[in-house]
Amino acid sequence: RKWEEIAERLREEFNINPEEAREAVEKAGGNEEEARRIVKKRL
């Protein structure tokens, strides 16, 4: 699934746990840019 690939990239890029990465992607509706913004806000 594409969402899992996005979550994996976010996890590696921001050094967050898989659960946090998945939550961000879900919140963003699968949009990678939006997920990235969500993760950055949390850091």
Score class of each variant (00 low, 15 high):
Arg1Ile: 11
Arg1Cys: 10
Arg1His: 11
Arg1Val: 11
Lys2Glu: 12
Lys2Ala: 13
Lys2Cys: 06
Lys2Pro: 11
Trp3Glu: 05
Trp3His: 07
Trp3Tyr: 09
Trp3Thr: 04
Glu4His: 10
Glu4Lys: 11
Glu4Phe: 10
Glu4Asp: 13
Glu4Ser: 08
Glu4Pro: 05
Glu4Tyr: 09
Glu4Trp: 13
Glu5Leu: 09
Glu5Trp: 07
Glu5Cys: 10
Glu5Asn: 05
Glu5Val: 08
Glu5Asp: 10
Ile6Tyr: 03
Ile6Ala: 04
Ile6Arg: 02
Ile6Cys: 04
Ile6Leu: 11
Ile6His: 02
Ile6Asp: 01
Ala7Ser: 06
Ala7His: 03
Glu8Ala: 14
Arg9Lys: 11
Arg9His: 06
Leu10Ser: 00
Leu10Trp: 01
Arg11Lys: 08
Arg11Pro: 01
Arg11Asp: 02
Arg11Tyr: 06
Arg11Ile: 14
Arg11Gln: 12
Arg11Thr: 09
Glu12Trp: 15
Glu12Gly: 09
Glu12Gln: 15
Glu12Tyr: 15
Glu12Arg: 15
Glu13Arg: 04
Glu13Met: 08
Glu13Val: 05
Phe14Thr: 02
Phe14Gly: 01
Phe14Met: 04
Phe14Ala: 02
Phe14Glu: 02
Phe14Asn: 02
Asn15Ala: 10
Ile16Met: 06
Ile16Leu: 09
Ile16Trp: 01
Ile16Pro: 01
Ile16Val: 08
Ile16Asn: 01
Ile16His: 01
Asn17Pro: 13
Asn17Cys: 09
Asn17Lys: 13
Asn17Asp: 12
Asn17Ala: 14
Pro18Arg: 13
Pro18Thr: 11
Pro18Lys: 12
Pro18Ser: 12
Pro18Leu: 14
Glu19Val: 09
Glu19Lys: 09
Glu19Ala: 11
Glu19Leu: 10
Glu19Thr: 10
Glu20Arg: 03
Glu20Asn: 05
Glu20Tyr: 08
Glu20His: 07
Glu20Thr: 08
Ala21Gly: 03
Ala21Ile: 05
Ala21Arg: 00
Ala21Leu: 03
Arg22Trp: 15
Arg22His: 09
Arg22Pro: 01
Arg22Asn: 08
Arg22Lys: 11
Glu23His: 10
Glu23Phe: 10
Ala24Lys: 01
Ala24Ile: 14
Ala24Trp: 03
Val25Ser: 02
Val25His: 00
Val25Trp: 03
Val25Gly: 01
Val25Thr: 05
Glu26Thr: 11
Glu26Pro: 00
Glu26Tyr: 14
Glu26Gln: 13
Lys27Gln: 15
Lys27Asp: 11
Lys27Leu: 15
Lys27Thr: 11
Lys27Phe: 12
Lys27Arg: 12
Lys27Tyr: 10
Lys27Val: 10
Ala28Trp: 01
Ala28Val: 03
Ala28Phe: 02
Gly29Asn: 14
Gly29Val: 09
Gly29Gln: 13
Gly29Met: 13
Gly29Arg: 14
Gly29Ser: 11
Gly30Trp: 03
Gly30Thr: 01
Gly30Phe: 04
Asn31Glu: 07
Asn31Asp: 14
Asn31Met: 07
Asn31Ala: 05
Glu32Thr: 04
Glu32Tyr: 13
Glu32Gly: 03
Glu33Thr: 09
Glu33Leu: 11
Glu33Gln: 12
Glu33Met: 11
Glu33Pro: 06
Glu34Gln: 09
Glu34Ile: 12
Glu34Val: 10
Ala35His: 00
Ala35Trp: 00
Ala35Pro: 00
Ala35Thr: 02
Arg36Leu: 04
Arg36Phe: 04
Arg36Lys: 06
Arg36Glu: 03
Arg36Pro: 00
Arg36Gly: 03
Arg36Val: 06
Arg37Tyr: 04
Arg37Lys: 11
Arg37Ala: 12
Arg37Gly: 06
Arg37His: 08
Arg37Asp: 09
Arg37Asn: 09
Arg37Cys: 09
Arg37Thr: 09
Ile38Met: 09
Ile38Ala: 08
Ile38Thr: 06
Ile38Asp: 04
Ile38Pro: 00
Ile38Phe: 05
Val39Met: 06
Val39Ser: 02
Val39Asp: 00
Lys40Gln: 14
Lys40Ile: 15
Lys40Asn: 09
Lys41Ser: 11
Lys41Cys: 13
Lys41Asn: 10
Lys41Ile: 10
Lys41Glu: 15
Lys41Thr: 10
Lys41Trp: 06
Lys41Asp: 14
Lys41Gln: 13
Lys41Gly: 08
Arg42Cys: 04
Arg42Asn: 15
Arg42Glu: 09
Arg42Tyr: 15
Leu43Gly: 05
Leu43Asp: 04
Leu43Trp: 08
Leu43Ile: 10
Leu43Pro: 06
Leu43Lys: 08
